[in-house]
Design a protein around this nucleic acid. Sequence first.
DNA 1: AAGCACGACAACCGCCCCTCC
DNA 2: TGGAGGGGCGGTTGTCGTGCT
Length: 276
Amino acid sequence: MKKPILLGTSTVTSRTPCCSKVGIKKGPWTAEEDEVLANYIKIEGGGRWRTLPKRAGLLSCGKSCRLRWMNYLRPTVKRGPIAPDEEDLILRLHRLVGNRWALIAGRIPGRTDNEIKNYWNTHLSKNLISQGIDPRTHKPLNPVSHGSSQANQDDDDDVPESNPNPPSSSKSSELMGEKTNSMATTNLESHQIYQHQQEVGDDCMGQPSSSGNGGDLVENGNEDHMFSLFLDSLITDNQQQQQQSNNGDLWEAEIMSPMVEFGNPQNYFNHHQQHP
DNA sequence: AAGCACGACAACCGCCCCTCC
DNA sequence: TGGAGGGGCGGTTGTCGTGCT
């Protein structure tokens, strides 16, 4: 069994840590701590995580409490192996948005970003590599015909065109572009996206977008909602096209290439807004 | 049986955004 | 308007379990 680690000194950084690390218990959670935390949240509710440990009588850091609750104790968290359809959806979404684990998790009810991230790193990325596919770009690792080597080499070195993964903290709102903060939230535009979703079908994995963990994004009722619907439509597009043609290249031609042309998903999304 | 390597995953860390005052 | 605090995110690390030598 892992031994709890008590940190004796706090690390001085330019930022104040989430909590004073003196006397903070680290390491795995015990069943007793889980019970205390779960009972406390059941009674008092979550929130104010930094002060929650003290109020609940726990020695763990507030962030640790939140993480434990979000990733393990929450009733809506689905335990057990990732199903094949979930795996397929993760692959699709990762191809669309890159390492936006929270965004991906938001589309897979019951799964957490941490779980998906771990599953990707330990399973899916290795599977893709074994298939000769770059897990970052979802393109062949060593294409036989590489065309203009310099240009393509730049592509390989850079983040994928379709999922840029900017170095800064990434949120779905960023994906949608900074301008959309002021323009993307009107009912009319929302309706346009919704209409597009209806046109292509809204049966994404058969999961209602407001259920379980997946509801987090949608309930925001802002750009995340828009982007969530947008993702639904793209995923459904992909599913329908692959079903119809049984040819993955069509996805490349109809969805990914336009995204490349637009530079990134946010521009593509903006275009969809204006031309639903 | 002991040591080692590796996979799986829980947990930690630092950064950033958002909200409130 | 700016600072502080709360919360969320993605990357990374640490630990345990298991299989192999």
